[in-house]
Design a protein around this nucleic acid. Structure first.
Lengths: 260, 260
DNA sequence: ACAGAGGATTCTGCTATGAAGAACAAGCCG
DNA sequence: CGGCTTGTTCTTCATAGCAGAATCCTCTGT
């Protein structure tokens, strides 16, 4: 039996156990979770709230808690995302210096995107760091360019109704999404105004990794600071940044031993 | 921005953040982790120990901490493992009553097995509950029957040297493993004496899920209570249990809406 | 081969956090 | 619509988790 550490952290242990229970056994109510861990319902509720906050759990419309994206996504390719992050960081810094707003890289993971790199702008009033966090792909300016480059079959599979059981309310109108992605494909970028968060505007462009557009770069800013005449500069800067990252990444990927 | 809960648990937050950092950025040293979380090195060490204990991290030979099986396995099919667990539990209880020892069900996940259901025997001196825990497939009596039923190409991929970077010492001798699996295939079960844990003997048999042998049932007991003349009864009881689980599972899977 | 530096791990004392319980809110069922 | 159960919020206090110190381990340079 694996040995419990000498200086175990009880609250951490409860949280990790609970994450594993959700992963292995499926959705749990607060009361069931409390019983399983032998803690009070209020304690179980706090633990579940933390798991939700960090994307290890999500709450369904039935009020039960389900395994969240962090523990149900195919997170393989960790070396790959580490490389992408490493290559991207200096370019994001250049992009932030150029446009004066926060910049991010994200990857597609199932029907979510995962923020894997962030550089914040120096502005006091800015969009903060979201590294590691997960958002629905169809709601983000980075997710849309990636979805746009999938085949129709791949998108049909991602948005099939049975895949969204337990989270039906979050599934988008597929026809509307297809129309929106057609615009994104034509323009070469996506723009989100007050979509993932109130008061935030983001512009995103796809990033090719090998043969696929499985990553994206975005610039985000408070909506009050966004004006239409800034769009051309931001789109231009994004194009440069994605080109440079793709170029450096290609060099790195050639040098790396890869399996999959 | 996702809102931090009103009654956030700081130590839980640190642990979950750290797990995500390992997943997204790759291996971290204790000192790097402490810096990232802005905590003392002793605190970071305790957090990492908890992540290792619950399989969210593992420590490499270079002393750095890597994402562990829980957050790097393809854990999709949670509904599927939940169904398998649900169907298996009563049969495991019958099996435990029959042979008087603990019984488990596990699934193959990459080159690991995951314990998804356990019923402990009533004996005071018994093998305890390991639900949720993860062990190398080639070291377990349940993992071997599953590995035995993979194609040679699938096994070659699972045990390719590049897949075991950072954990070379744990990769088995492939030729020896092939010979052992041939015996397992011929016999129809695997037996482990003092392998995954000192003082524990386990016997395991593969469980078909749909077209694949992607699960297994095992019986485990303290080695001191195992005698060769019990083997026939245990193997027979395992055969009955796996047959019954497969039968009930087939009924359930027909009734379930499935995607993949 | 050895010494020094840096990182990892263990241990201890103290205080800030996490636990339970109470109270309140929400949802479901008869 | 009322009663019951579950989910959520808030408060108080005991202890668990924190940092710092000490020790151990590993690596590198001379």
């Amino acid at each position: 039996m694996k040995n419990k550490p000498h200086y175990a952290l009880q609250s951490v242990d409860h949280a990790l156990q609970l994450a594993v229970i959700l992963q292995v056994e499926g959705p749990q109510s607060v009361t069931e979770a409390a019983r399983r861990l032998d803690v009070a319902r209020s304690t179980a509720h706090r633990l579940l709230s933390m798991l939700v906050y960090r994307d290890f759990a999500r709450q369904g419309p039935d009020r039960r808690y389900y395994a969240g994206p962090v523990i149900s996504l195919e997170a393989g390719g960790s070396d790959h995302t580490a490389v992408l992050r490493d290559v991207s960081m200096p370019h994001l810094q250049v992009l932030v210096d150029r446009v004066g707003e926060s910049a991010n890289v994200m990857v597609l993971a199932g029907d979510y995107v995962r923020f894997i790199a962030s550089v914040e702008s120096r502005e006091t009033f800015r969009v903060g760091n979201r590294e590691g966090m997960v958002f629905p792909a169809h709601l983000t300016s980075g997710g849309k360019p990636m979805l746009a480059e999938l085949s129709p079959e791949e998108r049909a599979e991602l948005y099939a109704p049975e895949r969204w059981e337990g989270r039906e309310a979050e599934r988008p109108d597929v026809a509307a999404l297809e129309r929106e992605l057609e615009v994104v494909r034509r323009r070469g970028f996506a723009i989100n105004r007050d979509r993932t968060e109130t008061g935030v505007t983001a512009i995103g462009r796809g990033l090719r990794v090998g043969e696929r557009t499985s990553a994206a770069v975005t610039v985000s800013m408070p909506t009050v600071r966004f004006q239409e005449d800034r769009l051309v500069d931001i789109v231009s800067a994004l194009a440069l940044a994605t080109r440079d990252i793709e170029h450096d990444l290609e060099g790195r990927l050639h040098a790396e031993r890869r399996w999959s």
